[in-house]
Design a protein around this nucleic acid. Structure first.
Lengths: 119, 119
DNA sequence: CCGCATCCGCCATGATACTG
DNA sequence: CAGTATCATGGCGGATGCGG
């Protein structure tokens, strides 16, 4: 690739990546949770309790892929028993406005659809 | 709760809705395709050919739910054999900037990740 | 041409129990 | 506390063929 502009293929691949990364039920909630709580340490069990409905398996799996994508950082504390803290990275925070855009659109969409089918 | 502002529950439900609506592999591609081609009539088979990899079943199913969500319009032409034209709605077009935000973020993310694992 | 029906494999998610 | 192992399941999505 000798040019820096965004070609069609890169757009397409990025779109694919976006779906692969954010398609599940939980990652957006997790990143927003960590974004909101970025000024205090967040530990595994606390997250599991605060994010209603998520299982330990899912939370663990999502956190792992989010760490691989450099959205969050994992910090092991040598307490007894061990505790693990999670923090949002600077890169992870760049997603917050994207999530906000998505959610804002969805709020409007939800209202429109609910109005169309008055219950 | 007596206020009309967006409360936490509505935010949460909207986020859920967003995932339910856009989680599949195809809908974002479809809406962008219809947005790009909004000035010329788009028919079923042409879409299926242009959106690489999609099957007729998937395209049909996605178009149906997108129509229910008032993102697109279905127009049956009484030709022989029948042809069906699809158009993006005004509401559907409001999603284009959201998609653009998502894609822009993803392009940056993709470059960052690719740089971290130089092949 | 459009789209539905059927069958089927695979994957995401969930429930529960268990380990260091 | 912070996960992992195991099993179950529901839905996504592909392949194929039928009907209008």
């Amino acid at each position: 690739m000798e040019h820096t502009s965004t070609d069609c293929k890169e757009l397409f691949l990025s779109m694919q990546d976006f779906g692969d990364l954010w398609s599940g039920k939980w990652k957006i909630q997790i990143i927003l949770y960590l974004s909101i709580n970025k000024h205090k340490p967040v530990f595994f069990t606390q997250m599991r309790n605060d994010i209603i409905g998520i299982s330990a398996k899912m939370l663990s799996k999502e956190l792992k892929t989010m760490e691989m994508n450099q959205l969050i950082t994992r910090i092991v504390h040598a307490t007894n028993p061990v505790t693990v803290e999670y923090r949002i990275t600077a890169h992870g925070e760049t997603f917050a406005p994207v999530a906000q855009t998505m959610i804002l659109w969805s709020v409007g969409h939800r209202r429109l659809i609910l109005n169309s089918f008055p219950s």
